[in-house]
């Protein structure tokens, strides 16, 4: 970093002191950014503080009586949700279902969308514009329009209340195609040309060149898909009927949202338990998420 521009030569102090001053200046220059980030970061933490306080507080009959900071800490709420687990609300099974379904959907989406995005972004073929327009247009269709038709279709296929029903509708992920398409457009044509000239087939170009170059964005897509599917509500709600096929988001509603009252303490305890898989996924994927992108990606 060139930070010495504009510093008069005459006032240059001895070498060690200059280093200190340089570092100090570097820090003071970063100070505004750090202050803004800290304020924003605290704002981001604010609601989660409430969620944790409610989850780790007393159960209070499920009412939201907690304030921002806990007066007493207890595991009452967690004990309660896992006690109920043995009889009617299999919480761990719900989480297992959610993790399995979301992971399966994430892998499927990554493979299917990467293949499709490669064809759309890097191959010339008849109808490419039509296919791309259809793919992007399908993003515009609100899911609510498809909910009932999908339900009837899956009933016809005999797939309701199965894992198939929970995974398959997410496979056609236009968002992923759109994201990877934008990314693949940014990969220099010369790289592709060089591989082709060296005799690589298209599947080889995709697998040896585009897949490695897009690990970062594909990981991002997978994490986002995982989270989307994990947090989806309406489809798993209508697609499943037996308690052991529910996903955790539906389970939380069943346990926590009553006709006349919301059981906030159970909801927040369940939420805290339910985000653990995603937090783990995020921590492991975090480096990949943004730094795996080797060549020019979404820029331009």
């Amino acid at each position: 970093m060139q930070t010495v521009i504009g510093v008069p030569a005459a006032s240059t102090p001895p070498v060690p002191a200059r280093h200190v001053q340089q570092r100090l200046r570097r820090i003071t220059r970063k100070l505004p950014v750090l202050v803004i980030l800290t304020i924003a970061g605290l704002a981001m933490l604010f609601p989660v503080l409430w969620i944790l306080t409610t989850a780790f507080g007393k159960s209070n009959g499920g009412l939201a009586t907690s304030n921002l900071f806990p007066s007493t800490l207890s595991l009452q709420n967690f004990r309660m949700i896992f006690n109920e687990q043995s009889t009617q609300d299999p919480v761990l099974r719900w989480i297992f279902n959610s993790v399995g379904v979301s992971a399966a959907a994430a892998v499927m989406v990554a493979v299917i969308d990467s293949l499709a995005a490669f064809a759309l972004a890097r191959l010339r073929f008849r109808g490419s514009k039509v296919v791309f327009t259809i793919v992007v247009s399908s993003l515009m269709v609100p899911f609510i329009a498809l909910l009932l038709p999908l339900y009837l279709w899956f009933q016809y296929l005999g797939l309701l209340n199965t894992y198939g029903a929970l995974v398959l509708p997410y496979a056609a992920n236009a968002f992923g195609v759109f994201l990877l398409y934008q990314f693949f457009l940014g990969i220099p044509q010369e790289l592709q040309d060089a591989a082709i000239a060296d005799g690589a087939s298209h599947p080889q170009v995709w697998w040896r060149l585009f897949v490695p170059l897009s690990t970062g964005i594909t990981a991002t897509l997978m994490v986002l898909t995982f989270m989307n599917v994990y947090n989806d509500f309406f489809w798993p709600l209508v697609a499943t009927s037996s308690p052991d096929m529910r996903t955790i988001t539906v389970g939380i509603e069943i346990v926590a949202i009553g006709q006349f009252q919301t059981n906030y303490t159970a909801m927040m305890a369940l939420t805290v338990v339910s985000i653990i898989p995603m937090v783990i996924a995020f921590i492991f994927a975090q480096r990949r998420l943004v730094e795996g992108i080797a060549v020019s990606g979404l820029q331009g």
């Binding site: 609601p47 409610t54 939380i252 926590a256 995603m278 921590i283």
Partner: peptide, 18 residues
Amino acid sequence: RFLFFYPSVFSATAFGSA
């Protein structure tokens, strides 16, 4: 990165209630 991304893990029911 963690701070600005982590709210995405919450379902709408959870963060809406909070």
